[in-house]
Design a protein around this nucleic acid. Structure first.
Lengths: 228, 228
DNA sequence: CCGGTCGCATGACCGCGGTCATACCGCCCA
DNA sequence: TGGGCGGTATGACCGCGGTCATGCGACCGG
């Protein structure tokens, strides 16, 4: 790993509570990896011999579904663990991971990482907490996707993005994340055509507009109303 | 707890690897609870001060979705933990739990259970394993529900039931689980009407027939074909 | 300058499945 | 015995959104 790996590790929620000594151990079993936009971190079905922790950039976790389409399970960012779920039971990765932008990960070898878990309670707590949040989150997605129509799901997606990475601006919120119409469709579990239709209509109505480096949400309240 | 609680605990995957001493500790912080068909174990939104472990019977985990409907997230049985995910981060339960039949649970108080986790590595391993399987499972459900049409999802549901609790019979498989048409609809994320339509058609076609104490799957291959 | 590619946009069509309405049957209880 | 009730069954209707097709502007390498 690069010399500043110690700093990278400390910036991750998962490792921030470790002792310096334990962080050094993590460093020893890890290498740093860099990805360009669109690069694949790992593919669905690959043997899971690496556990990743994102230090910068956003990465989408996608799963192939019927008809050659794909579904975005979640969008992860700095501090989030990646591939840990599969690795825990040494199963193949249940989904693929693709960088949405320039990204850097810490890749730790599975076996020694598991060994480290044994002796490191705070790391275990971090993993358990992360897993349980993901179960909750996935349950919520499942409920949304079965219970709401497409437009409402789009509203829910943008509300979530606004909460997670929105930057307040003059009477609007900016989401600094570039997603194609296809990405949005894969998030909502719909087709690119409907994704385009909704986004272009919302653009005209001034609900959400697309810029070259992200989205602008003019009114959170409008989205809230649309999300039911 | 009742005198045979020790035996009950040992029968659960989660606790089977504990030392007798640790199992005694679990017993101390737990009470046994019994439920009749349709009884609610806990409700979505309730504060999660209890962690349950099922010792007998099946329990469905349901989440309310738009329009007063509900979605079955999963069906749990003997040995499965219940409510652990919410409890871990002391959040309210993200879903409700309802007994599908007569059921018995071991209910452990949250705080001491968490304390026990600290000193009990094998219990932690069990929790992590259980959580990761659930994340994988939920991801799969999400992919199925967005990628397949209703009939294919029904096929996937029955295939899963067959694998989990099917009993081989003369050239057919028996699933000893009573689910109403409404339950099936809530599992597939559809309405009772379409659920009824599919099941009554399948009954006539001899794919899956409903009996008073469960379902009979005549041909696993037929379901496999229908599941795409 | 041009052909090729990629992402975005928009219209026409139509089928799956959600909604509404009605009916049948077994069961329990007054 | 009759009436209410919960679960199951079936038909008619129609709207959301998936599918197919076509077009447009931006960008890029030749």
């Amino acid at each position: 790993m690069s010399p500043d790996s110690e700093t990278l590790l400390r910036s991750c929620a998962l490792f921030s509570r470790l002792t310096a000594e334990d962080r050094r151990k993590v460093t020893e079993i890890s290498v740093e990896r860099r990805y360009g936009k669109g690069d694949q971190v790992f593919a669905e079905g690959d043997p899971s011999d690496l556990i990743f922790t994102i230090t910068s950039g956003r990465i989408k976790v996608v799963k192939a579904i019927a008809g050659g389409k794909e579904l975005i399970l979640e969008i992860l960012g700095p501090g989030d663990p990646l591939g840990a779920i599969a690795a825990y039971e040494s199963r193949p990765y249940p989904a693929s991971a693709i960088a949405l932008e320039e990204a850097i990960c810490i890749a730790s070898k599975r076996a020694p990482f598991m060994a480290l878990l044994e002796t490191c309670p705070s790391l275990v707590r971090g993993m358990l907490g992360g897993f349980s949040l993901r179960v909750i989150e996935l349950g919520k997605r499942l409920a949304e996707i079965t219970g709401s129509r497409v437009e409402a799901r789009f509203a829910q997606i943008f509300l979530k993005l606004a909460d997670r990475l929105g930057q307040p601006r003059a009477s609007s919120i900016f989401v600094p994340l570039v997603l194609s119409r296809q990405d949005l469709a894969d998030l909502a579990g719909t087709t690119m055509e409907t994704s385009i239709r909704i986004m272009s209509r919302w653009g005209k109505e001034g609900v959400v507009s697309t810029e070259s480096d992200g989205f602008v949400i003019s009114s959170r309240d409008d989205l809230e109303a649309l999300s039911r």
